[in-house]
């Protein structure tokens, strides 16, 4: 097949030119695309200034004095307020020590400080803003929409995050975190900004209504009663383990009792 392509390219310059033109067009689209995005919220300049001061104390050693990035950390130009809000309020940033992945931990910043940091990061370049509730809320969806959310979840998310959102393994010590108890806003922010190894799921491919359906599905899934202890939703490995420990282990204990000679009179 490949040699056909090669021949065609040799034989006629015109189709090649056409392809080139299409390529250019595509590249142009790509270059133009980000400009069409939500513009940065530069509303409160005092908040930006506060954020900058905080940033320079706590973030700049890795991300540079103006968020331009260093060898230690990526550039934050254009990541948007949503990214900053996600990373800091889940405790992932600032990182305590370099590792394969920034783990979720206790957030030590106040809401005002996070808002200031987000405002500063947003001022660096246009990126996704912090979403409003109607963008991510999973409330008030119809059963059909919830079911569609389930299909979207299983198609786009479960490969890494597992069928119940319990999390899963990635190469070289990285992992997809559990989604149990994670709010709709965090899920929206993660999908739109693609933190760390997670790919971006932009509104072009998955509009807000789809995100809401996914959030609604997860909330309903995690709220429904279970038919017994679920072993963290880890699937057949955990089930097998408990079949051995509780099933075989328990029955063997009874078997020992059955075959044991009881107390004797002397």
């Amino acid at each position: 097949m490949r040699f056909l392509t090669a021949k065609r390219r040799h034989r006629a310059a015109r189709p090649a030119l056409l392809v080139l033109a299409l390529l250019l067009m595509g590249a142009l689209y790509a270059a133009v695309a980000p400009a069409a995005r939500v513009s940065a919220d530069t509303g409160n300049s005092q908040q930006v200034a506060e954020g900058k001061a905080l940033f320079q104390v706590t973030c700049s050693s890795c991300h540079g004095m103006n968020g331009e990035g260093t060898s230690q950390g990526p550039s934050l130009v254009g990541v948007g307020a949503a990214a900053a809000n996600f990373q800091v309020s889940t405790g992932r940033m600032p990182m305590a020590n370099p590792g394969a992945q920034a783990p979720r931990k206790q957030n030590t910043y106040t809401d005002e400080e996070i808002a200031a940091l987000a405002a500063f990061v947003a001022s660096l370049g246009p990126g996704p803003a912090i979403p409003t509730e109607d963008q991510y809320s999973g409330e008030g969806l119809s059963p059909d929409e919830l079911a569609k959310g389930g299909e979207l979840f299983r198609t786009n998310c479960s490969a890494c995050h597992n069928f119940e959102g319990a999390g899963g393994a990635l190469p070289n010590g990285k992992y997809a975190p559990s989604l149990v108890g994670v709010s709709g806003q965090r899920i929206w922010e993660a999908m739109r900004t693609g933190p760390q190894q997670m790919p971006v799921f932009s509104s072009g491919a998955l509009p807000d209504e789809d995100v809401r359906a996914i959030v609604g599905y997860l909330d309903t899934l995690h709220a429904q009663p279970s038919s017994g202890i679920a072993f963290g939703g880890l699937g057949p490995v955990a089930e097998g383990l408990f079949a051995w420990i509780i099933g075989i282990g328990g029955i063997c204990l009874i078997a020992v009792w059955i075959a044991a000679k009881g107390a004797r009179a002397r």
Binding site: G150, E151, R154, T155, S158, A159, C160, H161, N162, F163, E164, A166, G167, G168, A169, A176, L221, G233, L234, G235, P236, V237, E239, G240, L241, A243, W244
Partner: peptide, 19 residues
């Protein structure tokens, strides 16, 4: 929780039963 079979879907922790 797993959903119906869909040849384009997969989940982390796809394992057979223990045996």
């Amino acid at each position: 929780n797993f959903g119906p079979y869909n040849p384009a879907q997969v989940t982390a922790g796809s394992q057979p039963d223990w045996y």
